[in-house]
Amino acid sequence: MDARLVAPAGAASAVAYFEIRNSGAVGDTLLYADSPEAGISMIRTTGPGRTERVPSVRVPAGGRVRMAPGGLGVVILDPPALAPGVTVDYNLWFRYSGRVTVRTPVVAGTK
């Protein structure tokens, strides 16, 4: 699983992106994501002039979901100071696979 957390200096929020691969024969569903180190998080999607909460994300059998700017991501509301170069643990909670903990590097971003 690829991951990164983009933390713009002085911003009121940050965002984490994950590339989730399902090598199994059965689909799974990402139900939510959290990090005790990063604060309150929610899965969301963005597009031109909109941001919406996403209740779950289907990960097809043998497939993948790639979160990226302008699409799916995990927004962190009121994040603590997160310095580029450190890593934080992120828990991804799936319907069938349960909790998957991912070491997520923090990278610099822009407001």
Rank of each mutant, 00 (worst) to 15 (best):
M1H: 02
D2H: 05
D2T: 04
D2A: 07
D2K: 05
L5M: 01
V6C: 03
V6F: 00
A7S: 09
P8Y: 05
P8D: 08
A9F: 12
A9S: 11
G10A: 07
A12F: 06
A12T: 11
V15H: 01
V15P: 00
F18W: 07
F18H: 14
E19N: 13
I20R: 03
I20M: 13
R21P: 09
N22F: 08
A25D: 11
G27C: 10
G27I: 07
D28K: 00
D28N: 03
T29H: 01
T29G: 01
L30T: 00
L30P: 00
L30N: 00
L31M: 12
Y32H: 13
A33H: 01
D34C: 12
S35V: 03
S35I: 02
E37S: 15
A38G: 02
A38Y: 00
G39F: 01
G39P: 02
I40D: 15
M42H: 09
I43N: 01
I43G: 03
I43M: 14
P48V: 13
P48C: 11
G49I: 06
T51R: 09
T51D: 12
T51E: 15
T51L: 12
E52S: 14
R53N: 12
V54H: 02
V54K: 02
P55H: 01
V57W: 00
V59T: 02
V59R: 00
V59Q: 00
G62V: 05
G63T: 04
V65M: 08
V65W: 02
V65C: 09
M67C: 14
A68I: 07
P69W: 00
L72M: 08
I76Q: 02
I76W: 01
D78R: 15
D78L: 15
P79E: 01
P79D: 02
P80D: 12
P80E: 11
A83Y: 04
A83V: 14
A83P: 04
V86M: 14
T87F: 04
T87P: 05
V88D: 02
D89F: 00
D89P: 03
N91C: 10
W93K: 10
W93N: 15
F94Y: 04
R95K: 14
R95Y: 06
R95M: 13
G98M: 14
R99P: 02
V100A: 08
T101S: 12
T101A: 12
V102C: 04
R103Q: 13
R103W: 03
T104M: 05
V107Q: 11
V107L: 13
A108H: 06
A108C: 09
G109I: 02
G109E: 06
K111L: 13
K111H: 10
